[in-house]
């Protein structure tokens, strides 16, 4: 805890060493967040760079009153959403064509364990809009109203996109489990 505090203080003073240490400590974690929202790895790398620039520039606004990691995550999520909004024109273009609507029985969830990589690959396959809503609702824990405000969409759109995203993800995970069981 003291180590983090000294890192924060160093970053506030603009010390390069502290900035580098902060980067080494949290880059992987925040890269994971960026990857969940980004279309591909390259996009996630771009967003991560922006995230750290924002962190360095705004670290003085962190008042040690909450979790520092939470604060960093929030910056990463907000930057990812900003990035998503910038590319909003193209976000839903492929959604309707690519998604196979297959409503599975909600009770039929496989108990097979999935690795993080497998889950990530499934999430990455989701269309951008669905993926964003899914991440915000399932992983970050936002409500539909908040998601609708953040993404400038209707609450019902958020709900429908989440249900479609779930269906799509469930199907993808089932395919993986089928491969696993046959192997």
């Amino acid at each position: 805890m003291e180590e983090v505090k000294s890192l924060i203080d160093g970053c506030m003073k603009g010390e390069r060493r502290s900035q580098d240490l902060l980067y080494r400590k949290y880059a992987s974690l925040l890269f994971g967040v960026c990857l969940r929202y980004a279309k591909n790895k390259m996009e996630a790398e771009d967003v991560l760079q922006e995230v750290f620039v924002k962190i360095y520039n705004n670290i003085s606004s962190y008042h040690h009153d909450g979790s520092f990691e939470g604060w960093l995550r929030r910056i990463a999520v907000n930057t990812s959403i900003t990035h998503y909004r910038k590319n909003l024109k193209h976000a839903f273009q492929e959604d309707i064509d690519n998604v196979v609507f297959q409503q599975n029985d909600p009770a039929q969830f496989n108990e097979l364990e999935y690795t993080q990589e497998e889950m990530m690959s499934c999430i990455a396959k989701l269309p951008t809009g669905y993926r964003t809503v899914f991440n915000l609702y399932v992983v970050e824990g936002f409500m539909h109203k908040e998601i609708a405000d953040m993404l400038n969409i209707d609450v019902n759109t958020s709900k429908s996109q989440l249900s479609r995203a779930k269906a799509y993800l469930q199907k993808e995970l089932e395919d993986i489990s089928k491969i696993k069981t046959t192997a």
Binding site: S28, F31, G32, F109
Partner: peptide
């Protein structure tokens, strides 16, 4: 079989701790 809520809880946990390696160029 597990419930939907438990399934997503599982995803949440896994994704929350997901920390892949960052390339040096970043």
């Amino acid at each position: 079989m597990m419930s939907e809520e438990k399934f997503y809880q599982n995803i949440r946990e896994q994704m929350f701790s997901y920390a892949p390696e960052v390339p040096e160029r970043v």
